[in-house]
Nucleic acid binder design. Structure first.
Lengths: 223, 223
DNA sequence: GTCTATACAAAGATAGAC
DNA sequence: GTCTATCTTTGTATAGAC
């Protein structure tokens, strides 16, 4: 039972044999799906087939459009880095007078709404041993560091501390610490400490994403 | 060209068809090899065959001894957590009067000599989506947190900060930031900031491990 | 622009000999 | 205690039709 074009199972006869949409749009759709899948399972455990299912298209088409799984991941990584930098720059541009640190932190956590962005970053960092991906991952890390140093104006210690908190956040998300929020006081404590005002958002998103294991189409609107 | 028992390629006719050693010892040997491989490639990308090569035995034997790859990883994770806790407890037991924080930090970084221990931990954290491994990973994380809170006596904020620095360290190791140490000032700066007095050790270990890609036997002594 | 069919490689696991 | 041979599944990628 793979992804069926216009077969039964559906509540009537409506699903066209996959809409024919412009490749640019399709690209973005696939990237979005791939980000969720790579973020959740990691590069190696993510399959092009799961990405395809999440995007609602066939596996060969995913490969066709991006050339290879590795290439797809590289584009996903690029996109994720872009979102992060963009998000930080938006904070810097905002004429708010409260301290930047916390504002950047909140902006970072807000990115969890964009499913998989943060996790893909961490997944990429885990691939340092890979010739191609590793290099790009290091570049990405350093690009963020430079932004903190040069554009935000943090000193080396503050930049390190900021990144450290970011890595902790990534880790808590990756290990799904929210699963233990309700049953373990320590889990609760560290989550509150790490996310503070953004904890509700994190818990909401975790609830939303759980069950909807990135893989098959996210229950599209039209039923 | 797999791992050959007593074939050619060797500098003479010496290598016995793999020594017959007691299973307890072999177990430890495999766990050590597996820690290096899992740490470097991650759970999914690590193959039982690479572990076997690193341990100098056949692939089926690895599976035979641990039942499955998943089980092997779980034991590796257990062992890694044990080493960390043990190492922290040793610091607490040490009648040194300098502040505990930095001493714990140095003890943590010292663990990189035990190849893969730190990385396996992070790799496990990345597997939160996995029913079995994810649960154990969360437990491990929380066990460390409790040790910091209860045994070390840190408050929630300090414990969080300590863990955050630890996650940054893990990430820097995983992404192999040391590869850029010589060529990128930012890489140099953040490595110095994150590892401070232990940077030399880190660079040494990186040099030692590079090239010796965990996979084939680590150039055993007798040539 | 998108699919079906399929070739091909990799990897985990099992059987059974030594 | 340890290996060789091998089954089986899964997953990437290609060919070619619609």
């Amino acid at each position: 039972m793979k992804n069926v074009p216009g077969s039964a199972a559906g509540p009537a006869a409506s699903e066209q044999p996959t809409e024919r949409i412009p490749s640019a749009e399709r690209r973005e759709q696939i990237l979005r799906a791939a980000t969720a899948v790579f973020g959740e399972r990691g590069y190696a455990q993510a399959t092009t087939d799961r990405v395809a299912q999440a995007a609602g298209i066939s596996q060969p088409y995913v490969v066709r459009m991006f050339g290879s799984k590795e290439n797809l991941f590289l584009e996903v990584l690029d996109r994720a880095l872009g979102r992060i930098m963009e998000s930080f720059r938006a904070v810097l541009a905002d004429p708010d007078d409260s301290p930047v640190g916390p504002r950047l932190g909140r902006a970072y956590v807000n990115l969890i709404e964009d499913r998989g962005i943060l996790l893909c970053l961490l997944q990429a960092f885990m691939l340092g041993h890979d010739e191609t991906i590793g290099r790009k991952a290091r570049q990405g890390f350093l690009a963020i560091y430079r932004l903190l140093r040069d554009d935000v104006g943090l000193d080396a210690d503050d930049a390190r501390r900021f990144l450290a908190e970011g890595m902790l956040i990534n880790t808590l998300l990756a290990v799904r610490m929210t699963d233990d929020y309700a049953t373990d006081v320590c889990a609760q404590e560290i989550l509150e400490s790490a996310f503070s005002s953004k904890l509700d958002l994190v818990l909401d998103v975790a609830r939303r994403d759980s069950g909807a294991d990135a893989g098959r189409p996210a229950a599209s609107g039209r039923a």
